[in-house]
Computed example of a mutant assay.
Amino acid sequence: MNFRQLDLNLLRVLVAIHRTRSVTEAGKSLALSQPAASNALARLRDFFGDELFVRSPVGLQPTRLCEQLAPAIQAQLLAMESLVQNHQPFDALSSQRHWRLSLSDLGEILFFPRLAAALRSESPHARLSNVSVDASQVATALEARDIDLAVGILKSQHRGIRSQLLFRERYMAISSKGGPPTRRGLSKTLSHAQLAQARFVVVAPTATFHGSVEKMLTGMKLQDRILIRPRHFGSIAELAQNTDLLCIVPEMYARDLCQRLQLQMWAIEDAPVYEVNMVWHSSTDQDADQQWMRSAIKRLFARV
């Protein structure tokens, strides 16, 4: 085995297959055709004298040698990428950077417009995409550079993942002006007894739903009073305006809707408070472009 004879581009293919467990998906992530990715795997197998990946019902499974190689190689590739980027000055005004963020459905509603407006003003040639990533896969996507950063109810529980608290949030109840409960005889906070007289709309997006609202209502023994469970927040305004239901949503969104529409809003007794964090991979800590974007997000949204 002569290292000088190894095409280092093949190592990117090895890492991509290890991450995706698929030759086809690895090729797509590297802009390679399926035959080109398969040929690269064949050359890797020949060089290392090992199968590296074997087929299984759930995709390609790495061999013992591959499990030793792939994580170490990925770490080195990320280090080299950061080294190169850190030696390139970043000019937001002229940058054509394509920013790939991961935000929930509600995050896109609340954060994307302001962030897009800031980019148009400060970095007009940049592009911005919201990449759909399951909350459980955010760390993997950050490590693979599939996304640059994520914002949401996320924790930095994986090695190499950094996080910064942007703000703390709680749940509020909103309804139409004429819908129950009426304000007569009510404080600005709904008690458990008052909630027990209502029926609810609770949003449950598949990718990011963390269960806090369900847990809260279950603890109050009110879970059976949830009548509507939309997957997205886009329908909440219509539901609040046109039904007699209480919609339970995060405070930031509740205030936004109540400022624009004829709705009423209450705090909820013992509603859980949760943290909204910005998370990124530690390998980008010193990247000038990443530092600029993190600073922009903190400036726009941090309330700590």
Rank of each mutant, 00 (worst) to 15 (best):
M1S: 13
R4S: 15
D7N: 15
D7H: 10
L8T: 12
A16Q: 00
I17R: 00
R21M: 05
S22L: 04
S22W: 02
T24C: 05
A26K: 00
A36S: 14
A37R: 01
S38V: 04
A40V: 12
L41T: 07
L44F: 08
D46V: 14
F47K: 05
G49I: 14
V54Q: 14
S56I: 13
S56L: 08
P57V: 14
P57T: 12
L60S: 03
P62F: 09
T63M: 10
R64D: 14
L69I: 05
A72S: 14
Q76A: 13
Q88A: 13
L93K: 11
L93Y: 11
S94N: 15
L106V: 08
E108D: 15
I109P: 00
F111G: 00
L115Y: 04
A118Y: 07
E122S: 13
E122Y: 04
S123G: 13
L128H: 02
N130D: 03
Q137M: 10
V138Q: 01
L142E: 00
E143G: 11
E143P: 01
A150V: 01
V151W: 00
G152R: 01
I153W: 02
L154H: 03
K155Y: 11
S156D: 14
Q157M: 08
H158E: 14
H158G: 03
L165P: 08
R168I: 09
S176G: 15
K177Q: 13
P181K: 05
T182C: 14
R183W: 10
R184E: 11
R184M: 09
G185F: 06
L186R: 11
K188G: 11
S191D: 07
A193T: 11
A193Q: 15
L195T: 03
A196D: 11
Q197R: 14
A198P: 01
A198T: 06
R199L: 08
V202L: 07
F209G: 08
S212F: 13
S212V: 05
L217M: 09
L222K: 06
L227W: 15
I228R: 04
R229M: 15
R231S: 11
F233W: 10
S235K: 05
S235E: 10
A237L: 08
L239D: 11
N242V: 06
L245R: 02
R255P: 01
D256L: 13
L257P: 03
Q259Y: 08
L261E: 09
Q262Y: 07
L263T: 09
Q264G: 07
E269W: 05
E269L: 08
V273M: 13
E275L: 04
N277P: 07
M278R: 00
V279M: 01
V279I: 15
H281T: 03
S282W: 02
S283H: 10
S283F: 10
S295M: 07
A296W: 03
I297Q: 00
K298M: 12
R303K: 11
V304W: 07
